[in-house]
Design a protein around this nucleic acid. Structure first.
Lengths: 137, 137
DNA sequence: CTCCACCTTTAAGGAAAGTTTCATGCTTCC
DNA sequence: GGAAGCATGAAACTTTCCTTAAAGGTGGAG
């Protein structure tokens, strides 16, 4: 049950955009890619998905770049997951078999709990310095 | 963010084994596969992983079959996920980049919360009749 | 008004994982 | 010893993930 690299990248780049939120000059793809050690060509696709989901905005041409669409605390990790990875803990099976329906029902409940937990974390949290990490290990 | 079919299958077959727990005659692979609409050849691998993790036991030869290793309420969904799908929300990346460490720390916290939630559900819950499903939708 | 820097869109390909199926050997009961 | 069933490993297929690439559109600067 692995977390996709794509979601990790998305969290990192949004944290990075959080730091430049409100500034006049917008960061470019290459700057973001280098700061977060993400392949630039892959980052392009992720940023597009984030833009299509309304989490970020972009400006074309010279002086172009990316920025958060709203303040960091107003973008949750649930928004991020749904933007790049689809529904949280989406079911693969059809719910067939004697225990299929019951199994689906329970997993939907678990997915709901996880979603609510993800909603409580925002880009603001991702921007905190690494010094507080001990609390999470 | 999809849940693997393998985990769903594992939950279903364990629910099925829960119903025959304590009985003298053990169900065969083919019976389990048919009851839960799971490809029998695939189910073999899943049952092996569940056995290697100590969740179920098996008997060879004629009159052979499978059974839970302990009572249904003593097998949690966290046990199931770890047996067939590895760690809960395992991280793919290296935690590199400016926000890599912080992102990892937050996701570890979320994974911990999900694990604790999974621990609260057991095979016993998976065995309940489908009539109670409405509460979970 | 032209060029350059930057974003936009799409696609192709390989690597990895997930799912299914098959083949062979080993145990136990009759 | 033979048949019924589990144990084990591997092959083949499908899907997803990750990476890289290329062609096109946009806006500011000179």
């Amino acid at each position: 049950m692995k977390l996709s690299l794509k979601v990790e990248y998305a969290c990192q780049v949004l944290a990075q955009l959080g730091h430049t939120f409100g500034k006049a000059e917008l960061p470019h793809i290459d700057e973001l890619a280098q700061a977060e050690s993400i392949p630039a060509n892959y980052l392009v696709q992720i940023l597009n998905e984030l833009r299509n989901s309304g989490l970020i905005v972009s400006r074309r041409g010279k002086m172009g770049g990316y920025a958060l669409a709203r303040e960091p605390r107003a973008i949750s990790m649930l928004d991020i997951v749904r933007a790049v990875d689809g529904d949280v803990l989406e079911l693969s099976g059809e719910g067939t078999g004697a225990s299929g329906a019951r199994t689906h029902a329970i997993w939907r409940g678990i997915a709901k709990g996880l979603s609510e937990n993800l909603r409580r974390h925002t880009v603001d949290d991702l921007m905190q310095a690494a010094a507080h990490e001990m609390y999470y290990i």
